[in-house]
Amino acid sequence: MASEIRQLSVFIENKPGRLSKVLKLIGESGIDIKALNIADTNDFGILRLILSDVDKAASLLKEKEYAVTITNVIAADVENTPGGLAGALSVLDTQGVSVEYMYASLSGTGEAAHVVIRVDDNEKASEALTSKGYKLIGDADIK
């Protein structure tokens, strides 16, 4: 059974002030941001967030007319040493899992970094990683 994390994505036009407006909304409602990543193109950006309360943030942003979506991603502890991340990715590669994007969380345990990974097949990716001794983590593990 894959241990999945629910990630909130927000469509943001590539214009000054748009990002801070969203982050301010989230902050003001007392929701904590545990990890984040932004993909940007000429016209738009996609803000991806791991939050302390995904549903609350989603409904809050929807109310303010933002286009949002919730996606299940996986997260793993990756050794905080040179080549640690490369090792985890090569496991996925070998299994033919393709990675759409990934990012590290804002916190870690010191020895390990929390890495959020968006793949095309969560089940397969989870199996591959756990079989090679990687620890998958859930929502609560990311502080």
Binding site: I46, T71, R118
Partner: peptide, 15 residues
């Protein structure tokens, strides 16, 4: 205008 239904978390899909 983007809609929640058309939106997804990857740049590839939006493009």
């Amino acid at each position: 205008e983007m809609t929640a239904e058309q939106f997804s978390d990857t740049v590839k899909d939006v493009q």
